[in-house]
């Protein structure tokens, strides 16, 4: 199940990225996490074949944010039939960059003693939200006004029964920082910032109306194509 916690960075439940039927018995499920500045790809490898599996290795294709394995895929002992192994693969963001579609698409190759297998997965953008993403207030106001309105995108976050303070502290766990909070005509307005590993800043306004579980999220960014993925991370 999911291990998303109220305080730490959100981690989605693992899903099957490579079904055994497509990989001669090798099943891979996984998720992504970020803890104190380090990104990892948390995997479970399961051997559903009749023979032992060994000599594992992993490689990523170029991707939008230069995600790359920061260590080899270490499976210490051979994987016997019906056996599973959990591995947390550290990642860095200094790999080669190529804009993907969708932006958060990651193409992965995994090999073992049997063959090489390919799959792709979508990573949540918040694994790229850095710990020093709290913009200084004056800079926020100037940047907010400087980014043209055409670069603003609005989204609805539905069915969220948290208070503004609870939302603010939960988001901070995933490196989305509340810069200021105002209340206008009963509506809570949170002004927030985040920064991506490649240095792109995203500014946000989160509008929370009492007794309305649907929040309005407005995102402003000089690279507006990241906005929908930031929204998905919020959601």
């Amino acid at each position: 199940g999911g291990v998303g916690t109220l305080s730490g960075s959100y981690v989605a439940p693992k899903t099957v990225w490579l079904p055994a039927m497509k990989a001669k018995g090798l099943e891979i499920s996984g998720t992504f996490s970020r803890q104190v500045g380090s990104i990892s790809m948390d995997l479970v490898l399961t051997n559903k074949a009749l023979q032992v599996m060994s000599d594992f290795a992993i490689q990523f294709n170029r991707n939008s944010f230069g995600l790359a394995p920061a260590a080899p895929l270490q499976v210490h002992a051979p994987l016997a039939p019906n056996q599973s192994v959990e591995i947390s693969l550290p990642l860095n963001t200094v790999g080669s960059v190529m804009k993907m579609d969708p932006l958060n698409n990651l193409q992965v190759a995994v090999k073992n003693n049997i063959d090489v297998f390919y799959f792709s997965t979508l990573y949540p953008l918040h694994i790229l939200f850095v710990e020093d993403g709290k913009m200084e207030r004056q800079m926020f106001l100037a940047t907010w006004k400087d980014i043209p309105n055409e670069n603003e995108a609005q989204f609805q976050i539905k069915d969220c029964a948290l208070s503004a303070d609870a939302v603010s502290s939960k988001l901070q766990g995933s490196n989305i920082f509340t810069i200021a909070k105002r209340n206008v005509e009963g509506q809570d307005m949170l002004y927030q910032s985040l920064k991506l590993t490649n240095g792109i800043w995203v500014l946000a306004e989160l509008r929370i109306q009492p007794s309305n579980p649907s929040f309005t999220l407005s995102l402003k960014c000089r690279a507006p194509e990241v906005s929908q993925y930031v929204y998905q991370a919020y959601d």
Partner: peptide, 20 residues
């Protein structure tokens, strides 16, 4: 004094966003 100015600026921003 600067902080008060910034506080005021955020209040104006929030106000303007609610009543464009």
């Amino acid at each position: 004094e600067m902080d008060d100015g910034l506080d005021e600026a955020f209040s104006r921003l929030a106000q303007s966003r609610t009543n464009p």
